[in-house]
Amino acid sequence: MADDHHGPTVRIYLAVFASLMFLTALTVWVAFQDLGMFNDVVALGIACTKATIVILFFMHVKYASRLTWLLAGAGILFLLILFAFAMADYVSRGWLGMPASHYLQ
């Protein structure tokens, strides 16, 4: 049974908070730098990092049972399945070079 009285300390919470604020500032700053298509990559990368930090520390997953890892992982895995399989259709529509695959408007 998960008894998480040994969760993170206040010191860790403050460190997590500081890094989240720093990453927020960073993502705004990066947005104004012209990195071409990498603007999106960096912005999403920072968002994923922030989310991971929140999940691990604020939501105690780092200290939780394997089952919690499994549940959180399952949610993210099926989210990726939804993205990947739906995008697969849209990305590959053009591959046969037929008008059917083109979107019109």
Partner: peptide, 29 residues
């Protein structure tokens, strides 16, 4: 309840760059 609140925060962590920040480069592609 803490778990719920943090989750709502995470959603915003993604909404912010996706909705607000992509306009800064004005068609960066």
């Amino acid at each position: 309840f803490g778990l719920y609140w943090h989750f709502v925060d995470i959603v915003w962590i993604f909404l912010f760059p996706l909705l607000y920040l992509l306009g800064t480069q004005g068609g960066g592609h």
